[in-house]
Design a protein around this nucleic acid. Structure first.
Ligand code: MN
Ligand code: MN
Ligand code: MN
Ligand code: MN
Lengths: 220, 220
DNA sequence: CGAAATATTTAGCCAAAGCTAAAAATATAT
DNA sequence: ATATATTTTTAGCTTTGGCTAAATATTTCG
């Protein structure tokens, strides 16, 4: 149906659209490690296929059918990540790269059978919600630790990057999905955050790290 | 490492090589549903990469490293077929098409973890042996029913085609891998074969069918 | 406002993998 | 042994998805 390149563009546009209303050529090119000229070309092709709306020099945004396709690709990606992590024993820093390939296997039957086999999981190993067949998914709560001011205990429920070294660092510091902690204080000078794990150990993390760890209130 | 097209050529050449010493351009093109001119082009590219030896107007044959690659692709293909059939509940006539896509996911870690997860299976759902990491696999016994003259009970252990309608027909006639039967007689006139299942029911199958069902003596 | 900087598009390339039609080599048949 | 048929290769074209460099539009700043 769609080429790998087309699917990668659609997925990237979808992700960029969460932050901007309209997706700019340069941002898209950066996201896909390609050049603006190439992005412009592909945007035109995707518009011709009715997957997005495009206004010259302004940007593009997905149509209904573009969004539907994006959600299907994201569904495949996250289901495979869950499979790799849960069934095959991959580390959460390893799954993304392999899922980038697996997400392009086109078979709705496969996707749905995989979903059922995995027990209809609602979140991938990074805490991102998995869309169902219709494209519905859990709303993501993503308060970054950098903005978490409450004294109440918090639970790590997501991460803001798929970077391998970032995820490895989190594992090393025992900061994985589901882990509980309290924020002891925010240092205003350099925006570092001091926190304490449920295990008792406490330490300080950089602003960059704090921005990429999402937490939610601990369920009662 | 290698493109999908390259991998498909290598795999086809490997399969054709079982029958001919040297693989001819036309046969290769037919196998891949493409044209002789395209096959010639790709053969040259693959020779430049050291995967095969090529003599103009004569044909080509895989080098050591070409064979190694072919076995790795076949390993991936058959492991995925086993996964789809065994874990996801696909029918044996459905797995081949999906495995054609999955076989091109390139990650040795994935292949090996999948192998372990599946319990190191030795045969795929069609009875074809699965190569291990080193490329070793069980020898296949493939006496077609058309040549099985013994009165002794035989066990179905392989099929000679991946065609969906063929495999569906076999399921319908209860002729699946592992099934036991005895050959009652060969009709010389039209080469049809009369056989009897372990269930007691007996019927006659066409020459074409008989040629594509492989059997072996029942283990004692 | 107008100049400089930045963003985007266009034009003109390239490589991969396919195709058709024509040329060349090989095989077959009279 | 020559003529015919088949197979294979070559030449030239197409599409997809890249690229660079130049042109054009937009934004920002003095
Ligand atoms: Mn991912
Ligand atoms: Mn991808
Ligand atoms: Mn198969
Ligand atoms: Mn394939």
């Amino acid at each position: 149906m769609y080429t790998v390149a087309e699917e990668n563009y659609i997925k990237s546009i979808y992700h960029l659209q969460r932050h901007q209303k309209s997706v700019h050529t340069n941002d898209l090119a950066a996201e896909l490690n390609t050049r603006a000229a190439s992005a412009t070309d592909m945007i035109k092709k995707l518009e011709a296929k009715g997957l997005l709306k495009y206004e010259k020099y302004y940007g593009c945004s997905l149509t209904k059918s573009g969004k539907k396709l994006a959600l299907n690709i994201i569904r495949r990606h996250r289901l495979w990540e869950f499979f790799l992590s849960e069934k095959l024993g991959f580390g959460w820093e390893e799954v993304h790269a392999v899922a980038e390939q697996l997400e392009h296997v086109q078979s709705d039957l496969l996707t749905d059978k995989l979903d059922a086999y995995l027990g209809f999981p609602r979140f991938d190993p990074h805490g991102d919600p998995i869309p169902d067949t219709l494209g519905n998914m859990a709303a993501r709560e993503q308060t970054p630790l950098s903005l978490w001011t409450s004294q109440a205990p918090a639970e790590v429920c997501g991460v803001g990057s798929q970077d391998e070294s970032f995820l490895e660092m989190l594992s090393l510091k025992q900061l994985e999905i589901g882990c509980r902690l309290t924020v002891l204080r925010h240092f205003n000078f350099d925006k570092t955050v001091e926190l304490q794990l449920a295990t008792g150990s406490s330490f300080t993390i950089s602003e960059m790290l704090a921005k990429n760890i999402f937490v939610k209130p601990v369920e009662v």
